[in-house]
Design a protein around this nucleic acid. Structure first.
Length: 925
RNA sequence: GCGGAUGUGGUGAAAUUGGUAGACACGCCAGACUUAGGAUCUGGUGCCGAGAGGUGUGCGGGUUCGAGUCCCUCCAUCCGCACCA
């Protein structure tokens, strides 16, 4: 009987659905386990073989945990708001909701083919009003909260307002941007606008001006990604840095707790390190520099207050608000020209480009707070307006960027380090003794730091301070396809829409573009198009992609709840995500935002845990192998081996990988039919009459024509084969190129497993006692498999199954006990075939996934002897089979007496003999 | 530029705590069977060498009885860098 995988897989997919095999509900009799995948954005291209990698791993783990007796929550959904659907809508006029729905249907179809154990009753879609109702509701909680530093948590803003009414803000200890001090009387006298302006400076979700990449021609803000060489990727229009009123999230308030929480979660050190660096905690001091002949103080933050006597100039960001005020008439033209030039560069370009040192002198001078010396004030684009105070005190002898700037503009580089040579480069280590620094002379960096800070504080020109690189997160998008804000404006002030009116649904618009005067697309909506229309106008911005994805793991716990984002009982039962699998590209985006929202919801008393993901694994990316053909200057396509030495005038073109033969030659007729431009293509073939291509590893993407879809592979080899093959490719965390060729090995393995039950053409197992050899094979496999799963080593797990089946085949084993146990072990990896076999083994059972996981018994593996590898100076020369009962001294004695040993000793006396019991013998000559 | 990761046969990789480098597969070579098939089975396969043997985990150095594994320098590739998701 053949392994008819297509029929078997279709049959079991249907039975699982009919029997609700993967439906899960709260059950206090079992321990819970929550396995989560990062939900996909349903793109128009569908899934390629890279997408399911993490889902397969999580599915295996979820099924394993279920067999181990856990109540497993394993849901799936869609992060369905996003830019591509909107871009498509702009091009075609089709409503993004329609595209999104179609894409989701396609994704679902593809996911179903793979046999995942998702409980689809719990599916969520971030673009569904019943979901984003609660995204809006959470936004409202954040709007109505501030960060109280005494309680060290987010707290309802009402309590802050009470404080303001009673005593003003002089004694409040909160995270804020408010420069103003007022007492109760002043607060009472404030206009509603003034009050709200103050409150905005405290709210967790607040309106403030932020720097954005503004593209006037497109009337929109662009991501750094959408800007290439200073112009928009779409259309090639100029882009400038601009201040815009934007919603932001006060994530900085959580900087310290986001750091601290990392110590309590099981993530890789690499990922934690990335988050730590992103948050970028640094200790130092603020210092104010008075501007000469002006009533202005430039505030800087420095991590090296100990080097304050090394300051020889200051650099402001070109966008710094003081630039215009301090710039001298003589320098005005140069400064303005520089500002314009800088405004055209994105922050990333400015940071990445260190070779081109640019800047302009403002003509103004600051006064050194201790020496009174005049310090020239420059502007330079290596200083970023959005980081710190947007100004730095330049210490060229201690900071390489300052050093390079000084060298380039021939500014002085005073050396304040004793015995350090700074003629070639700055000395940035913190281990030098300070010199030429007045009261800091002779101190080490640490002592100088402390003394400098006290001096700065004593003078009242600054204070010791902890700074974070982390910036508050801009939360507005001038896009259509996102969550509308539950906000309207009255007298120019933002107000929250009442809970009863949620969700504020996306209104229909006539085009998905900004208005003529640069308002976001929602400004196009007619009044009637809004689900509610309050005040003077609704908020026209929408929320960013990360809004919906910052809390979806909570919604899965109770996806149909209409009264709350999730019921307290459900939240209490499922608690944290126990295992989260997804790509490392989310290290500093999604994973930080989700932690932030979780902490805020925890502070406000809605959930009982403040870290969302107890354990996290990053799966690597599956890369595609692009096919590169060469077009000659004569417009002929050259075979790779026919290229001339001089490739001038040749260009590389990527062609669809489906057009290749196994030997990496092009199917010429298929190429001609593929795209019109190749219809009459001429070729320069090699001696075999073939046109060979070069293969190169790229990201798997439609754009490189190197996509391999799971659908075809499921059709040809079955989902079980594909699942196991994806796991077999290599360690989950590692990136690896896709190569379909190897899949036959795994397919052959499943056939071999199938044959164990069909030795004589039909299903047959032997009910006798299993042989010791078979038991040994089985228990070795149980041990290895369980260890591998517990450390998420899925690839070696597949190898172990292969070894096990190879051994059982060798033993001609078709023993019921052995094969039943093996089938349960394998079921998480290859659920369809194992379920089919199980239904033959146990016809009354509903599903193999209600079985008990095999228990390892070490007694089947005990060995009495061991093949000791005998090494000489660390090089293995021969093996000696010895009883394990022998002591170390006995082993030494026996090995030294061996004739092989004598041969390798070459008559010399061993200097030393090292025996590690049960491991190795090493003889040192 | 900054931050993170990776580097082992022709290919994907294994080696979990410093203890036999290359398990398991793909590919390739040889053979068996055969209705000639991209089926199945058997044997071989890191490199150099006829062999004995030598050599080998990106390069160079170090620690150790012993290093793919630990330390230092360098090189290459990949990911992220705040409005892509």
């Amino acid at each position: 009987m053949d392994y008819t995988f297509n029929a078997i897989e279709a049959k079991w997919r249907q039975i699982w659905q009919e029997r609700n095999t993967y439906k899960v509900s709260e059950d206090n009799s079992k321990p819970k386990f929550y396995v989560l995948d990062m939900f996909p954005y349903p793109s128009g291209a569908g899934l390629h073989v890279g997408h399911p990698l993490g889902y397969i791993a999580s599915d295996i783990f979820a099924r394993y945990k279920r067999l181990k007796g856990f109540n497993v929550l394993h849901p799936m959904g869609y992060d369905s708001f996003g830019l591509p659907a909107e871009q498509y809508a702009i091009q075609t006029g089709q409503h993004p909701a329609i595209t999104t729905k179609e894409n989701i249907a396609r994704y679902r179809q593809q996911l179903d083919l793979m046999g995942f154990s998702f409980d689809w009753d719990r599916e969520v879609r971030t673009s569904d009003p019943s979901y984003y109702k609660w995204t809006q509701w959470i936004f409202k909680q954040l709007f109505d909260a501030y960060y109280d530093l005494n309680l060290d948590k987010a707290t309802p803003i009402a309590s802050l307002i009470r404080t303001f009414e009673q005593e003003g803000n002089s004694n409040t200890n909160a995270v804020h941007d408010c420069e103003q001090r007022f007492d109760a009387a002043a607060w009472a006298a404030f206009s509603p606008e003034a009050k709200e302006t103050v409150l905005q400076q405290y709210r967790m979700a607040y309106l403030a001006e932020s720097w954005v990449n503004w593209c006037p021609a497109l009337g929109t803000v662009l991501a750094n990604d959408e800007i290439v060489n200073g112009v928009s990727e779409r259309g090639g229009h100029p882009v400038e840095q601009k201040r815009m009123m934007q919603w932001s999230m006060r994530i900085k308030a959580y900087a310290e707790r986001l750091l601290e929480g990392l110590d309590r979660i099981d993530w890789t050190d690499a990922l934690k390190e990335q988050q730590r660096n992103w948050i970028g905690k640094s200790k130092g001091s603020s210092v104010q520099f008075a501007v000469k002949d002006a009533d202005l103080q430039i505030e800087v933050f420095t991590t090296r207050p100990d080097t304050i006597f090394g300051v020889s100039f200051m650099v402001l960001a070109p966008e710094h608000p003081f630039v215009e005020q301090i710039c001298t008439p003589a320098q005005a033209q140069e400064v303005q020209a520089y500002q314009q030039q800088a405004a055209l560069k994105t922050e990333r370009d400015r940071q990445a480009d260190v070779k081109n040192i640019t800047g302009a002198f403002t003509g103004a001078y600051a006064l050194h707070p201790f020496t009174g010396q005049e310090i020239p004030i420059w502007i330079g684009d290596y200083v970023l307006a959005s980081y710190g105070t947007g100004a730095v005190m330049a210490v060229p002898c201690g900071d390489q960027r300052d050093y390079d700037f000084a060298k380039h503009f021939k500014l002085p580089i005073p050396n304040i380090f004793a015995d350090q040579d700074i003629s070639e480069a700055a000395y940035s280590e913190k281990d030098a003794v300070i010199a030429n620094s007045d009261f800091l002379n002779g101190l080490d960096a640490k002592a100088a730091m402390e003394k400098a800070i006290s001096a700065i504080e004593a003078k009242g020109i600054g204070q010791g301070k902890t700074n974070y690189r982390l910036r508050d997160a801009v939360f507005s998008r001038q896009r259509y396809w996102g969550e509308p804000f539950p906000v309207y404006y009255q007298d120019g002030l933002p107000h929250l829409v009442d809970d009863a009116l949620l969700p504020v649904t996306l209104p229909d618009v006539d085009a998905y573009l900004p208005t003529e005067d640069g308002e976001p697309p929602l400004a196009r909506a007619a009044k009637e198009a809004w689900s509610c229309q309050l005040g003077e106008r609704m908020e026209y911005n929408t929320m960013p992609g990360w809004a919906g994805s910052s809390w979806y793991f909570l919604r899965y716990m109770d996806p149909h709840n209409q009264e709350a984002f999730a019921g307290p009982d459900k939240l209490a039962y499922w608690n944290q995500v126990d295992l989260y699998i997804g790509g490392s590209e989310h290290a500093t985006g999604h994973l930080l935002y989700a932690r932030f929202w979780t902490k805020a919801l925890y502070d406000l008393g809605f959930i009982h845990f403040d870290e969302p993901f107890a354990k996290l694994i990053n799966q690597g990316m599956i890369l595609g192998k692009s096919a590169i053909a060469y077009m000659g200057p004569d417009q002929k396509m050259y075979s790779l081996d026919m290229l001339p030495e001089n490739k001038e005038g040749f260009r590389e073109v990527r062609i669809l990988i489906d057009l290749l033969n196994d030997d990496e030659s092009i199917q010429l007729d298929a190429l001609k039919a593929w795209q019109p431009q190749y219809a009459a293509q001429e070729f320069v073939c090699n001696a075999d009459g073939k046109v060979l291509v070069k293969r190169e590893v790229d990201k798997m993407s439609k754009r490189w024509y190197n996509v391999v879809t799971p659908d075809d592979l499921c059709e040809k080899y079955g989902a079980d084969t594909l699942r196991m093959y994806e796991m077999f490719l290599g360690p989950l965390e590692q990136s690896k190129p896709w190569d379909t060729k190897g899949i036959t090995g795994v397919h052959g393995f499943l056939k071999k497993y199938w044959r164990l039950f069909h030795l004589n053409g039909q299903f047959e197992v032997d009910d006798a006692q299993p042989s010791p050899a078979a038991l040994k094979t089985l228990h070795k496999t149980i041990k290895k498999l369980t260890d591998d799963l517990e450390r998420f080593s899925f690839n070696t797990g597949v190898s172990s199954f292969m070894i096990c089946v190879n051994e059982l085949t060798e033993q001609k084993c078709n023993n019921r006990h052995i094969l039943e146990q093996l089938t349960i072990l394998m079921a998480p990896y290859a659920p369809h075939i194992c379920e089919e076999i199980w239904s033959q083994l146990q016809p009354t059972s509903q599903t193999i996934f209600d079985s008990e996981y095999p228990v390892f018994d070490a007694s089947y593996l005990t060995e009495s002897s061991f093949d000791y590898p005998v090494s000489f100076n660390g090089k293995m020369r021969f093996k000696a089979t010895l009883e394990l009962a022998l002591s170390i001294d006995e082993v030494k004695e026996v090995v030294l007496a061996k004739p092989e040993t004598q041969k390798w000793l070459e008559g010399k006396d061993p200097k030393k003999v090292i025996v590690v019991h049960g491991k190795i013998v090493n003889i040192v000559l």
